[in-house]
Nucleic acid binder design. Structure first.
Lengths: 242, 242
DNA sequence: CTTCAATGGTCTGTTTCCAGACTTTTGGAC
DNA sequence: GTCCAAAAGTCTGGAAACAGACCATTGAAG
């Protein structure tokens, strides 16, 4: 008899990610840093946002206040008021990357990169194997164009939007959430390295290849293109680390 | 300017999955149904388990009591006591599958199957691309043998163990957790259909192909083998649904 | 210049959840 | 038989989170 012998580790993991307040701050911060809510835009109204996040308004407000005091948000009252994003990604400085990696803890970097590789490749492959509507094809192309036209300050944000669009177009919320999660885990790292012209151009070629493969309905090609692209990013990160 | 325009949906999702008690019951139930803790074995001691799940002992005890009253656990006091698993998967009855699908809600079935396809394919491919130690190869082979030798009552459990082993061997906890999550989402469905000899044999061939590809270091083959296997499972489910 | 609707700001009582100390039961070791 | 250690069972006070009602501010529309 084999006994139980399943890793078990993966199932008896924490039910709740600690404290609601901190978790909320983290979430909002990620939404801001990822540019889900761009500079100058505002978060949804408190009541609505609290409902979306599944927390009480009190807790949400505490989180918003923390972000306000840290100069990420500017909160204005009255009609047409709201919590406006005020944050601009700072230009990375030497040492930021190392710091970000240390924050992840041992093994965290490889874990995040592996995870991202798995889910993003999977998403691209699945999308390429689907029958796409005209609207979906248009969305994909427009996101691609978005990254290509991006001003440097907007680059990461639109790059994120592009990658997430692939996952969301699969129509699987679970898969989209996994890709968003994967992206989150490398955001701080990516934000800690400069956006260089040669890298942008290289990435643009790869992005184009990904889109082409998806639009042609070539799952294998799409998977390979994404893998190549992500390996490039991983190599870039590792390069800055040494 | 593109505006925000990221799906956003994926990021402003709930911070906490509702209620700690219910969430804990759900978790434990999954661990039992998946056979992470097999019939006759016991859960870890309350204090330890509470710590692992990141909840208080009180909350955990409430959950355990609920499962005890529902005849999933038998709790015994004193030294060598504990919460023993008493549940045996019942033979599925007609209508169970439809019920399970309805519980998932609209779109849930496709979502779960798509998600599973993405993450398990990704895991297999990544594992096949790694240098494996002797120990890892042995683990994989032993899990394969485990499924092949399984008594019908143990089949699903050992099948789960096999699939999860692939994910865990990649060494990425995030990926392992994603695969476990994916598996969870189809467990109720799989448990609702009978384990038939022809299906077992078919699956055995596919499992062998997966392991062979991984051991040979053939990422593309591993991915394809997993995809084929999961498509088979998906087709089986869809077949029982019509 | 008044009104109004949308929004953030505040308050109160309740429920959930927690940390930790203490008690009881049990079966094996000596 | 006695003792002991490992486990479940119980209790209490406090902190965190919530639900919902209500207040205050704002800017646009009329």
């Amino acid at each position: 008899m084999d006994g139980g012998a399943t890793g078990a580790v993966s199932l008896l993991r924490p039910v709740r990610a600690g404290n609601a307040f901190e978790e909320t701050v983290e979430r909002l911060l990620q939404a801001i840093k990822l540019g889900v809510v761009a500079h100058g835009e505002k978060l949804p109204p408190e009541r609505e946002l609290a409902a979306q996040l599944g927390i009480s308004r009190v807790t949400l407000r505490e989180a918003i206040r923390a972000l306000q005091e840290a100069d990420f948000l500017d909160v204005r009252r009255g009609r047409y008021g709201g919590a406006f994003v005020v944050y601009r990604p700072p230009s990375p400085r030497k040492g930021d990357l190392r710091r970000a990696v240390n924050e992840m803890g041992a093994g965290g970097l490889d874990d995040a990169l592996t995870f991202r590789m798995a889910v993003e490749c999977g998403a691209a492959q699945i999308l390429a194997g689907m029958e796409l509507t005209e609207g979906q094809r248009a969305t994909l192309s427009s996101r691609l164009a978005g990254v290509n036209d991006a001003a440097p300050a907007d680059y990461r944000r639109l790059d994120t939007a592009f990658h997430l669009a692939i996952a969301e177009l699969t129509g699987s919320p679970l898969l989209a959430a996994a890709c968003a999660d994967a992206r989150l885990r490398v955001t701080d790292l990516l934000n800690a390295i400069p956006v260089l012209q040669p890298n942008i151009e290289h990435a643009a070629t790869q992005h184009a290849a990904i889109v082409a493969a998806i639009l042609e309905g070539d799952p294998e090609g799409a998977r390979r293109a994404v893998a190549e692209h992500l390996e490039g990013t991983a190599a870039l990160l590792r390069g800055f680390l040494s």
